[in-house]
Every structure is written in structure tokens, then in C-alpha cells.
Write a protein that binds this DNA or RNA. Structure first.
Lengths: 151, 151
DNA sequence: GTAATTTGTAACAAGACAAGTGACATGAGT
DNA sequence: ACTCATGTCACTTGTCTTGTTACAAATTAC
């Protein structure tokens, strides 16, 4: 559990959801991700609130895409997850009195801000459809559906 | 304790160490950082091994800079700390079988790698002397040494 | 209308990791 | 010898994602 893997997991799931029509239950998705149905619901809740997926209770229920992959960027998913902390490092004190510490924090914050901006800009520039297309390319190259997990 | 603040703390300490000649004990430094002497020794150990500071036991002992600030970049300090994890996010699985997951991870890893490269390049381009100079500028502007913590 | 299925949610344990803390050995100066 | 200071081990604490159990609520099937 070293990293926050929610973004990675949700991207993975959304693309799979696009590849079969019918609703996917939390249990199916959990098996795909090697995790627990409750974790799935918890994490997907953010995506539902932002309108990227829908969920239905009862028989035949489960999760469905609510938008085409072409209209969802990686940044959208990141935002829907509540914009989790990107960095593992940070200042020791957010409001230091010491001017030296302020100067140190300013330099670090600036560098991190620039790096974060670059990362988010990249996430915003890639749609899920693009990743799906890359996958399709690999698939036809190998012509072997078995490589895709649980699909 | 939300973030790993070792880099921020060490930069702060090194600049202060340059401002007074005599050795600084772990206890003095700990007070400055609002922490514990053991934490200070633990964290400074990496800097000592890389030759940026020296430590001496016994009376009059403590920590001293072993190099001028102009020869230490923020990246040097980061590396000396053992290159802690920069990002809080990451893939769910490092060696996934699923091609979809592989495609997702590849895109994320690429974006993160670029952001990391940018960040490290920036850290490598700034010496501690430069931060100290920024501090001096502020100081003369305010002409009030009291703003600096414990110095 | 009762049973089966599936989400929604709360509550809590596990795991990881930096940070905090206490204890004690080691070395250096007075 | 005594004091000061580092070096290091062992353990606890705080925080955050995950994992898990339990149960209510909604929806479909028989």
C-alpha cells in the first residue's frame, strides 16, 4: 500500500467498462482490481457524483459508464477523486516565522508547483479514449484477447 | 505529519549553520525545528555520509558545515537523504498482466517521470547560497535580525 | 410479498512510513 | 572521573490509503 493507487485503478476500470456494455457489479470490479467491493464503491462514488458513471441497485444492477471515454480526461478522473495529494514531500511548517525557512519553503513550493502544473496539464491532455486506443493497437498486434484482465 | 519534511528541514538547518561559525548541537537544531535531537541526528546522518556536514562528539561538539553553501544544491541534499519518494500517487500494480492496466500505467508513469525530471532539474539548479542570499535581501530590507529563528 | 441481489455507508483493523521518544553505549574534552 | 554530545536501537504515535465486517435501503425475480 505504498502509494495512493486510486487514480490508476479508476482509469483501468473505466476503460474496461467501455469494452462491455452490461453493468459491472462492484464484486466483478473488485476481482479485476484484486481488492474489495467496498473499496470499489468508495472510490467510484466520486466518479458518480461528477457524472462519469452511474450505479444501479438490485438485480442486474451495478456500474455503467455515463459518458463516452472521449469526453473524460485523466485530469477529470483525478479531480473527481477529490484531487488527492500528489506529492509525498512538503514543508515542515506552513506558516513559519523564520525568514530563512520562508525562503526555503518559497523555493521548494515554487518548484513543486511547476512540477504539479506540468503533471496536471499532461493529465488534462489525455482522454481515456486515447489510452483505450493504445490498448487496441497492442491487442491487434498480438491478436490475443486473453491478455486483457477479466474482460 | 502529513508530508515528508526532511528536505525542507535540512535546507533550513544548513543555511542557519552557515550563519554562525561554531558547532550546533543536535539539541539546538532540534529546538529550531521544533522536534527531537534524535530525529535531527537520524536525518543529518545522510548529509554527513555525503560529506556536506561533519559531526563531533563531546564538549564543544556538534554539527558543522563541511562545504560552502555555494557547493551544495537542493538536489544534493535530496540525494543525500536517500532520494525519498516524491509522489504520493502511483500504480496499483507494478507488473500487471492486463494490457489495459499496462497502457494506463505507461501514460501515468510517463507524466510522472516528466514532472519528476522537471522538479529535480530545478532542485539541481539552485544552491543553498542562493536561498541564503534571498534571505539576506529580506533581512536588510527589514533590518531586523529578530525575524530569523534561533540564530 | 418474500427472497435474492446489489449499492450505500458506517465503523474499525491492517500496513506503511515519517516523526517522536526513551534508553544506553561510545567517544571527546575539562 | 565527570560532563557533554553523537550514534543507534527499540518502540510509540499520527496519518492516510486499504481491507473487512456488518447492516440498511433499493430494486428485480419468483
Amino acid at each position: 500500500m505504498r502509494n495512493d493507487s486510486r487514480l490508476s485503478r479508476m482509469l483501468h476500470v473505466l476503460i474496461h467498462m467501455d469494452r462491455h456494455q452490461d453493468a459491472a457489479t462492484s464484486e466483478m470490479i473488485a476481482k479485476m482490481l484484486n481488492t474489495n467491493p467496498v473499496v470499489v464503491r468508495r472510490t467510484m462514488a466520486g466518479l458518480r457524483e461528477e457524472g462519469y458513471v452511474r450505479s444501479e441497485k438490485g438485480h442486474g444492477g451495478g456500474w455503467r459508464l455515463a459518458r463516452p471515454l472521449s469526453e473524460i480526461t485523466l485530469l477529470d478522473v483525478y479531480n473527481a477523486l477529490g484531487e488527492p495529494h500528489l506529492f509525498a514531500i512538503g514543508p515542515a511548517d506552513d506558516q513559519p516565522q523564520c525568514l530563512v525557512e520562508q525562503a526555503v519553503n518559497a523555493v521548494l513550493a515554487d518548484a513543486m508547483k511547476k512540477a504539479e502544473a506540468l503533471l496536471l496539464r499532461r493529465l488534462g491532455g489525455v482522454t481515456l479514449e486515447k489510452i483505450a486506443a493504445e490498448f487496441e493497437a497492442k491487442m491487434t498486434a498480438r491478436s490475443a484477447a486473453a491478455y486483457s484482465c477479466a474482460s
